[in-house]
Design a binder for these strands. Structure first.
Lengths: 194, 194, 194, 194
DNA sequence: CATGAATGAGACTTCATTCAT
DNA sequence: AATGAATGAAGTCTCATTCAT
């Protein structure tokens, strides 16, 4: 685990909020420094570049999601239930981590040319993790035989899209924040049940 | 229908390729002008800003997708089949329009702060169209009762994610370009069948 | 006298209004063409450049002012009265030619580097004309002995400044449009009476 | 009092010279940066925009003129003498601050559409200050009853025009630089004496 | 460790002007 | 005569990053 200083914590928190609201390019280092109440130089002491700040955040978020699922698994949750959780884990985190959920739902590798490869690797890593879960489920005959990685991407893609829509502040958004998790879990389960 | 001059056609074609490869921010107007073999001024003669070029492209692409589905519907295709098509329409277009497919699979409203609302509206419009298809399917008892708009976003999100992955130039990508359409259609159909 | 086609008339009228409101640089040829309801090309048929349009207007305005004074002189008005008129001639024209008065009151040779010399020449020409009037007044002992060109510039400068202020749409502006001419004439006369 | 860094001082000095010579639009930020021997970014570090540089200069110049008059007043100079000074203060400053005198003599609110209001406010503020001087003079019966603000604008307008002419590098200009102050003071005094 | 002034490349955009039709 | 699409130079401004203090 990365050790983070209090300053890093402040930077990350400010950055998450800004990146989520205005995207990678819409957020300047200066804005982050300002929002975090630290100097520009201080950020460059801890991160090589703006891109590194961005990546550090995404890494942490994907890690967080894996941890949630890993704990459920450790508690003996069955694969068929895990699939539902993967689908709705964004929603579970919505209350306490709205900004980071928004960031994840709104980030695509295209966000920055030079970052493409690394962002993709991050997504692929998480998709690979989910695919592995699916394979275990297939072995346990709790999930239908299918192309695990495709299914993983489909699963994550749908979760991302619905979450993004749920974050809108309109009638549909409000509705989705209530019914989204269940709808999504149901959707996922039906698509993957044997 | 928008009439497009030959120059506009050249601009759009160059822009699609660049936006798809390097994203909105990674693509400069100069690069587009260069690639299209026109002057910078000529682009601004036809489009108010870089954002307008981007929007014009996306509008056209969504329009194209709607047209494809609309034609199938006109030929009498049943809702249960239409759902499969919506899921795999990106793949249908892959051969002739690789760049635009890539662009659509890689674009999120966050791409540009000032564009967010309009990009979202575009996505929402298409999602609304798909939701309407689903509702018709429900009436015909060919699709299970569900929250149509959520299902539409889920459907499109999964298609987007899988397509994006399929566009990668690695083993999985190649594999997906072959098996993706069927997997996706199956995934969608299972999730939505009565 | 320059002959002007109807098209030129439309161009000049539109240009005066725009130049007066937004200055030389704030006014584009396109805006003029648009406001005049003619094509850009048409403007370039009649004027070599935007600068020529601007100069044509200023020439016409200075000419107009000279004509007004010249007519009064032809009617036998005494030098001491003419001085008052020169001071307030802007106001005389205010009702029918608000835009051009505004333009003249707000234009300085600095408006455009490449125009400086020619604008200055125009101002100098008019100042020279006024200086000549003053010299005639001195000969007739109706005006005190003074450095005529200095006095002319002072006279025109004060008229310009007060007119500019009078054109503002506030309480002082309204007040000045009523009392300005008399105040100005009095000011000028006291400064120049023997 | 605004504290100015050495860099700001260099920027302002270069900017004054350029603005005076080529006007606001004829002077590019790049040219200022070049002439000041600083980077473009450095200018934007200290000023929000080119307009702010321009305004900062004008503010300083008007301030300087007020200070000159204020000091004379503090030394007990009578209103009737102060009027003469206000008229010729530009000339007093000519030796040491030729560029800024030129700038002031050649600047009108129209210089830039978006700046109009603020430039006008600056002029109006100074005119208001002069009007107040005139009112004090009227109370002391050293200046004739008149509309103070009109008189102030007239006074400043004439000073501006004569100064501008004096700055020309021809015979008249040379002549005016010698006789201008006295002529102007005389002109002003006659126009305003009881 | 921390600061923030300074850098300068590069982005978007405007606009006077030209020229084929 | 008239049109307006096309040009491309030039302008303002932003921003990631560096470095002396």
């Amino acid at each position: 685990m990365e050790k983070t200083t209090p300053l890093q914590e402040r930077v990350v928190q400010a950055a998450v909020k800004l990146f989520a609201g205005r995207g990678f390019h819409g957020t300047s280092i200066r804005a982050i420094a300002c929002a975090a109440g630290v100097s520009i130089g201080a950020i460059y002491h801890h991160y090589r570049s703006k891109e590194e700040v961005f990546l550090a955040i995404l890494r942490r978020e994907y890690e967080r999601r894996r941890t949630v699922v890993e704990e459920l698994k450790a508690q003996g949750m069955a694969p068929k239930e895990l699939v539902r959780c993967v689908a709705s884990v964004h929603f579970e985190l919505l209350d306490r981590h709205q900004d980071s959920v928004k960031l994840l739902a709104q980030t695509l590798p295209t966000e920055h040319p030079r970052l493409q490869a690394r962002l993709r690797a991050l997504e692929e890593e998480y998709a690979g993790y989910v695919a592995e879960l699916l394979r275990e489920g297939m072995l346990a005959a709790q999930i239908r035989q299918c192309h695990a990685l495709t299914a993983a991407h489909a699963l994550l893609g749908m979760a991302k899209a619905v979450t993004a829509r749920a974050l809108e502040d309109d009638a549909v958004g409000h509705d989705l924040r209530v019914r989204g998790p269940e709808e999504l879990a149901e959707f996922a389960w039906r698509a993957l049940c044997p």
